[in-house]
Simulated assay, not measured.
Amino acid sequence: MTPHKIIERASTDSMNQSRHIEIVVQKYNSQEIANNRLRVKALIEVVRCLAFQGYAFRAHDESSSSINHGNFLKLLKLLALKNKQIRELVLDKAPKNACYTSPDIQKKILQVLATRVKNEIRKEIGDTKFYIIVDKARDELKKEQMTIVLRLVDQDGILRERFLGVVHVLDTTTLTSKKSIDFVLSNHN
């Protein structure tokens, strides 16, 4: 057997081994992907639960010495306590670059959920006619804000009201209200 054939056979044999670098990296990547998906699914469930209940996410002090870490971290800890798989992937067990507990990540998850809800409202409305209900009030900082709600009769003949949002407005004139309503409706298609 020629030296070339020996090297070729050794190369083929090494490629077939279960410890070959490509196989190890592939297994590592697929396991890491599965772990990240489970970690993110747990976070989405915590965000969904807090959002649907209308609870605050964060506390004033979420440091390790704090007594109150906020609802988000408390609920995530509870979920981890009840599920061993999640316990091994979140909070202090998560890689430092993949904790996903920052306020920015929470807001992005909320934005995705809000977009899904808005898409469902848009589907529900379809081509039916609707009324726009607008109410203005001042917040604690004395800034004007306007809520926009749509009232419609759905396919089953049931009267529904769907909240679209709160818009801060500079004043309470008709022109400002119209521009704000146009802005909100165009953002929701």
Rank of each mutant, 00 (worst) to 15 (best):
F57Q: 02
A80M: 05
A137I: 11
N68T: 02
G165A: 07
I133E: 13
F72V: 05
D92E: 15
L110S: 09
T172K: 08
V90T: 00
V90Y: 06
T173K: 09
I121S: 01
K129F: 15
R58D: 04
T101P: 07
K93A: 10
K96P: 01
S66I: 01
I133P: 05
E144A: 10
N97T: 11
Q106H: 05
S177H: 04
E124Y: 00
T173M: 01
K123Y: 09
A137F: 12
L175M: 15
I148K: 00
E124K: 12
I158K: 14
K118L: 10
S102D: 03
L159E: 05
H168V: 11
K77N: 12
R58P: 05
T173V: 04
E62N: 05
V134M: 08
K82P: 01
T115F: 12
D182G: 06
Q155R: 11
G126C: 00
K118E: 13
A94F: 06
A59D: 03
D61I: 01
T147M: 11
G126N: 05
E120F: 07
R58S: 00
D92M: 10
E124F: 07
V153G: 07
A98E: 14
S63R: 08
L164K: 06
I133Y: 11
S65C: 13
K179F: 08
T172W: 07
H168T: 14
Q111D: 14
S66Q: 03
S180D: 05
D61C: 04
L81P: 07
D104Y: 13
K136W: 00
L170K: 14
R122I: 10
S65P: 06
Q106T: 09
L79V: 10
K96M: 14
L113F: 00
V149A: 04
T115C: 14
I132Q: 03
I121F: 02
F130M: 06
E62V: 01
D61H: 06
T115E: 15
S180V: 06
M146L: 02
A80T: 03
E144P: 00
A137N: 13
L185G: 00
V117W: 02
V153Y: 00
L141F: 10
K77V: 07
K143E: 12
I132Y: 08
K178G: 04
T176S: 08
L73K: 10
F183K: 15
K93T: 01
E88Q: 09
L150T: 06
E144K: 12
I132G: 00
S180L: 04
S65N: 15
S177A: 09
A94K: 02
D127A: 09
L113A: 08
V169D: 02
N187R: 11
H69R: 09
G70L: 08
C99E: 13
L159M: 14
K84S: 12
N187Q: 14
V112I: 12
K107T: 15
I105S: 00
G70N: 07
L76W: 02
D156P: 01
D171H: 02
K129T: 13
Q85I: 08
I133M: 15
N187K: 12
Y131I: 12
L152V: 03
D127T: 11
A114C: 10
R138K: 15
L185R: 06
L175E: 15
R160F: 04
E161Y: 02
G165T: 03
V117R: 09
I105T: 06
I158M: 10
F183E: 15
K84H: 13
D154S: 07
F130W: 03
E88I: 04
I121E: 07
L185P: 03
H168S: 14
S64W: 08
A59Y: 03
